[in-house]
Simulated assay, not measured.
Amino acid sequence: MPIRTNRGRAAVYRRLWGWPMRSPRHLTVVVFVVAVLVIATGILVPQLTGGDKPGGPAAAASSDNENPTTAPSTPGTTNTPGVTGSASDLPTRITSVPSAPTSAPPDPAALDVADSWGRAWVNHPEGISNEDWLADLRPFTTEEQLTEMATVEPGNIGATKVTGEPKAVESFTSSVQVELPTDDGNLLITVIDTPDGWRVAFYEQVS
């Protein structure tokens, strides 16, 4: 039956507004319904207004963050992804050619070492072992060269004596190449300056 008077309508409104306060259960129901309505509104309104559509402002901002624009290159800078700074921050490349060894008169001590080494080299009595042969050469030889000579069989060396004086072929401040004659051809001996003094670092037989 329709309510036709203002007093009747007011009574109905008071009853509706007072219903939640009649008991805790009624209040809980009202709070739950209101919460559901708020959540539904938060979900439906953005969908209806297109706020989360692809291509919207939020998507554009995300795209800008994921694909940063590479700055245009300028002289003296590098554009390597993830790397910033100028090319001057990189280590300087060496463009100059290392200087050649400095020539110098042969050191008499270097010639003496070459001569002593040569006399130990030709001293290989029959039956001498490689170890004993190298022991005589050790005071005049670098450790690297001794390792190379560890496979040499002394009995296969044809020279048995030195037949002349050592002669410098090339001479620098830190190395001297010496020619030493033997009864089985000449030895070309390279002597270098080490912390322990002049030592033989290389040799070869020449005609």
Rank of each mutant, 00 (worst) to 15 (best):
D89F: 05
P81H: 02
T141R: 03
P106S: 10
R25C: 11
S88D: 14
E143H: 06
G127S: 05
P24E: 12
A104K: 09
D184K: 04
V206G: 03
G42Q: 14
E179F: 04
T147F: 06
T70W: 08
S88K: 13
V38L: 12
W121R: 14
A120G: 15
L137W: 14
P106E: 03
R14K: 14
P68V: 01
I94R: 12
R14L: 13
P105H: 02
P108I: 10
T160K: 14
P81Q: 03
T41H: 11
A135H: 11
S23F: 08
S96F: 11
A35N: 13
G158M: 14
V206Q: 09
A104E: 01
A40T: 15
L188M: 10
G197N: 03
G155Y: 04
N156D: 13
G76M: 03
G8Q: 06
W19N: 14
A71W: 05
S62Y: 08
R119G: 06
A58S: 08
A59R: 03
P108W: 04
F172I: 01
R14V: 09
Y203R: 05
T142Y: 03
E66W: 15
R4Y: 12
E143A: 15
S129H: 02
V178Q: 02
F172E: 02
A10S: 15
W17K: 12
E66A: 15
L16Y: 15
L137P: 08
G127D: 09
W133L: 08
H124V: 05
I128G: 00
D112T: 10
L16S: 13
G155H: 08
P154E: 06
L188W: 02
S207C: 01
T142G: 06
L180C: 06
I39Q: 06
N67P: 05
A109P: 00
V113K: 00
R14G: 04
V169W: 03
P20D: 06
V31G: 15
T173K: 07
N6H: 14
P195V: 06
P139A: 14
